[in-house]
Design a protein around this nucleic acid. Structure first.
Length: 155
DNA sequence: GCCAACGTTGGC
DNA sequence: GCCAACGTTGGC
């Protein structure tokens, strides 16, 4: 099993939204590297750190789990969608998405600041300057440490 | 709102 | 195939 980090702006779709809806389709990925991770490497049951970007605070808000393998993202064909891609054809879909389901919500977001301050998390991709990938792999060790921090925050 | 970092596009 | 221009991401 692999581990991942996926970014979402909580104003768009937060960990609370995921908790309420139980699951969601991860639409709107329009980056080839992120798509390829979903297409080639994600497996059912893979655990995901749910990361809030452009947030206060920014950081990991909980855990999700991959519950459907990569399949075509229909928003690529929808002219009204902000994710519309006029060059994507029905026959050869360019963009894919997975479904993820809610696993847990941390009582407090494990902030980016606290991630940076933790020596055990040195080298974690999300901490790299300029790292914009919205789907990124996480080592099992880093994953467990972030979960430990998140669970540790439970009152 | 600013802007650094990065990916993509398109002219050549 | 190079690379400047442009658009987007995302922390601050």
């Amino acid at each position: 099993m692999r581990h991942w980090l996926m970014k979402s702006e909580p104003e768009v779709f937060s960990i609370d939204d995921l908790k309420e809806n139980k699951k969601t389709s991860w639409e709107g990925v329009r980056n080839y590297q992120a798509r390829n991770f979903m297409r080639d490497d994600m497996q059912l049951g893979d655990k995901v750190l749910y990361y809030h970007s452009n947030a206060e605070p920014t950081g990991v808000a909980g855990v999700a789990e991959v519950c459907r393998l990569a399949y075509p993202d229909p928003t690529q064909w929808d002219p009204r969608s902000k994710y519309h891609d006029a060059s994507a054809s029905r026959e050869d879909p360019r963009w894919l998405m997975v479904d993820v389901k809610f696993v847990s919500r941390f009582s407090e977001v494990v902030s980016l600041e606290s991630l940076k301050a933790n020596p055990l998390l040195a080298g974690m991709p999300v901490l790299k300057r300029g790292m914009r990938l919205s789907v990124q792999p996480v080592s099992p060790e880093h994953f467990e440490e972030v979960v430990r921090l998140g669970i540790g925050g439970v009152a």
